[in-house]
Design a protein around this nucleic acid. Structure first.
Lengths: 261, 261
DNA sequence: GCTATTGGTTCATTATATGAACCGTTGGTT
DNA sequence: AACCAACGGTTCATATAATGAACCAATAGC
């Protein structure tokens, strides 16, 4: 494996829950030698990619990543463009809205917005990495990827997050055809217990599906009426963001969404 | 030099004006071998740090940087926290406002906001890297760094951007004492012709000065009244952002700002 | 059809990354 | 106080990964 890859895998260990990581912990979690970690972190620190937080010697992400992200957003508006739509969606439906996009071969959280409508809501801080087979967003994206991509995504073992997670690739694949027809996906507690969520795919200027937007709600609160609203609101939001990203909906999907509305 | 550093230097070539860079160009500008560039870019592409834009084979920054920036902002709110203040400042003064922060040993643009008050305004898109010796923000920051830091920042050759840029370290250093007394810095066309700008330093939870906020206006428009308003508005904005960043103003600066107001 | 440039590839050479063992320090336990 | 374990950081012989000159195939300009 290349050295650069190893260094960036180190960066990938940082999450919202684990914003501060010490040297030994870094070595343990990455499986790399402590000395190796140290040299890499020192190097990345010199470049501002990571920094050592105040008194503690633990590392956290540094200011240099902000510059890179600002440049990316200037070149390809993704997050900033979609953010208002995500917020409006959460407000409109009264539940947690959630935007994700493909990074490499993973689906990652890009943004989320809470609603103030209820005291209880589905929290999203912890969901950095979204498993394709167990989330509505993952299913929505997979339904619009090539067969080969789906094959490779489902080739590894599919971990069970709850008792009802589909861990059989065939079970997962069976849902995709339906999603292609209806234009939206759905999961019942397959990732987190007591959570129902609905999602639709998003497309960018490349022509491919590169993300998804979804809504997650406590299962008990999802009445048929709310469910229907989630679907229609998502279709509108999905069309909006796809337009903002310079993408175009596949004709079949466009039909499904317009006839549903 | 470490391999990781080289790879990240490659990333540093991307700017707002140069968002798309081809392989050969990358090799030329970095001074590295084309094969080396190729391997590094391939590796970084696999991680989503860069991607190849659509039809062209040229590279641009990838979606992975957004994730890192989102995590950084979640851990240490910097840009998102300060952004509203920057926008309010631009609106209030009617000129371009500009936020910068230290990354490694450089001062980089973090955000900026334009005012709609005038047809002409100072554009900021191109100012990614701010020279310490030739910008008001750079001077403001240097005035509150340690002597050793200032020494190393002024040790290299100081390029002249206009006919009036101070290229003598002594000239530059002479201004710092005044800035420490008044609490704000000023430049007249030392970076861009016909531009006058004023800036104040910003402090974060580390206790040190880690950035600056400034206003840039066409020189012809800077009346004594506008100049006075720039200074007072900046002091307020500087205090606000420093508070948002969890920092505290040095007592001397706090005095200077409060007696001025 | 010539030339120059592009992105990408190869493989012997060499420089760089690696990791077991080692410090000195810190913080908790007995 | 004595002990122990874990911490961040350092060393140096070894081994692995990076390197770069030369080479493709493809494209664009003339």
């Amino acid at each position: 494996m290349g050295t650069v890859t190893k260094a960036l895998e180190l960066l990938d260990l940082f999450t919202r829950e684990q914003a501060l990581i010490g040297l030994s912990e870094l070595a343990r979690q990455s499986g790399m030698n402590k000395a190796t970690c140290f040299r890499m972190m020192t190097e990345m620190q010199a470049l501002g990619l990571v920094e050592q937080a105040g008194a503690s010697k633990a590392y956290r992400l540094g200011p240099a990543v902000l510059r890179l992200a600002a440049l990316r957003e200037a070149a390809v508006p993704t997050r900033d463009a979609a953010m208002p739509v995500v917020q409006a969606l959460a407000r409109e439906v009264g539940e947690t809205a959630h935007l994700s996009h493909i990074v490499g071969t993973t689906l990652r959280t890009l943004a989320f917005a809470y609603s103030a409508a209820h005291g209880t809501k589905v929290m999203m801080e912890d969901a950095d990495l979204l498993p394709f087979h167990a989330t509505s967003s993952g299913l929505a994206v997979m339904a619009f990827l090539s067969d080969e991509s789906v094959d490779s995504l489902l080739s590894g073992p599919l971990p069970a997050f709850t008792a009802v997670t589909h861990t059989n690739p065939a079970q997962v694949r069976a849902q995709l055809a339906t999603i292609r027809l209806t234009g939206w996906s759905e999961t019942h507690a397959t990732f987190e217990a007591d959570v129902r969520s609905v999602a639709v795919p998003l497309f960018d200027a490349s022509g491919g599906c590169t993300g998804a937007i979804g809504i997650a709600a406590p299962a008990a609160r999802v009445t048929p009426a709310l469910h229907a609203q989630m679907v229609t609101s998502l279709m509108r939001a999905g069309a909006e963001i796809t337009a903002l990203w310079g993408g175009r909906l596949p004709p079949a999907l466009k039909d499904a969404w317009t006839t549903a509305a």
